[in-house]
Design a protein around this nucleic acid. Sequence first.
DNA 1: AGTGATATGTTATATTATTACATCTATGGA
DNA 2: TCCATAGATGTAATAATATAACATATCACT
Lengths: 158, 158
Amino acid sequence: MLDKTSIQSSHNHKNCMQHALQAAEKVCKNKGVRLTSIRKRILELICTSHKAMGAYGLLDLYKQEDPKAKPVTIYRALDFLMDVGLVHKIESLNAFIGCLQSEKQHQTAIFICDNCKNAYEIDASSVYENLFTLSQSLQFKPQKLTIELRGLCVNCRY
Amino acid sequence: MLDKTSIQSSHNHKNCMQHALQAAEKVCKNKGVRLTSIRKRILELICTSHKAMGAYGLLDLYKQEDPKAKPVTIYRALDFLMDVGLVHKIESLNAFIGCLQSEKQHQTAIFICDNCKNAYEIDASSVYENLFTLSQSLQFKPQKLTIELRGLCVNCRY
DNA sequence: AGTGATATGTTATATTATTACATCTATGGA
DNA sequence: TCCATAGATGTAATAATATAACATATCACT
Ligand SMILES: [Zn+2]
Ligand SMILES: [Zn+2]
Ligand SMILES: [Zn+2]
Ligand SMILES: [Zn+2]
């Protein structure tokens, strides 16, 4: 699980990455869906950092390995990865991050640093409770929540 | 202020609209900025319903009155209206709604019905409190929050 | 009226995302 | 093993959203 320390720029990112990729295999096996080589590679590219990546940025990277890749190649992989819950879209950036807690149910908010562009998914269950209660009072039936905070991370705020 | 009843499809929308436009005049006067005729008209178009409107949908409408209007015409008006706080962007839809509480400070979440496309801004201060507390514990300095709930409204859920 | 700041006009282009249809590949049953 | 078929990928085109750059017009103040 992502904890406070992983938001430090000093954290050992290899752990994040390895964890995400192992979890991906498990999740796909459990759900009976195929983590094909394209999909896996796109996930790897996303997970190389905590920076949110745009689809066309990913395309540029992926083209170094497969020069005839097209936008739709990336979008299809992203759609799959999002369906399975391995990747999340950051709506306010039109960009994507790898999920670091894909094995668990999770109710998270995304903290996005506008300086370093790192984006961290942090557990925010109580915020969800709060919003579910509010929904109930409005007789609104929520299906998908988007909670994003733009600002400055601890590494960039001073 | 938006209350529960304004989410009912039966509410009297003329009140919403009139209120929004009067508030717009006040807000602009207070801030010493100019609500020019283009800006005002775009705001009116947005406020004709609670449906989130895309920039190009607005352009189509506005073109009926000014056939040589261009995308940038709309985006400039929207940028102004957003800066002043008269319009909000719904990030998960790339669409815009008029603000119905522009005079007050407000901390709101947006409830979006995926059936009827109506979008309502509802006070959610306690959610903000919650997220601010979480931010503090991460030493994150939040500058802009995006809280959007997609689902089904009371008119569409059954 | 003259001046500077703000707003608008105009053209072009950048960025993000999807549609449509052809072809290939993995997989399970005959 | 071979076939049927569902799912995945290839390829081309285009749709949808948003911004850049620069010229001209208008407003607010002196
Ligand atoms: Zn990491
Ligand atoms: Zn940062
Ligand atoms: Zn109304
Ligand atoms: Zn509805």
